[in-house]
Amino acid sequence: MTLEFVGRTMDLEKGYWTVFPDLCKGCGLCIEKCPVDCIDWSDVLGAYGTPSVKADNRCIACGICQNICPDCALRLDKKKTKEH
């Protein structure tokens, strides 16, 4: 029983992008749905021993990956923009 998941948070320009390898099954749906192709396979293994995903700085923090993940393995927290 797992009640607390350990995430890998990436500090990107537009937001904090977190993947939970214990939940990621490596289906790759997020890689296809990302509008800027910033998600790719990583070296960290996921729930079934398949590669989990990672993101890079091209991320625009749209949140589609968080929405489309069937396992809720992705989480995106937008950074607050500076007020002008």
Partner: peptide
Amino acid sequence: MQLQPAMPRSWRVDTKPHK
């Protein structure tokens, strides 16, 4: 407590990853 997955509140967390 660390950052946790953004699951719907009605999901049962202790059975995830689901089957």
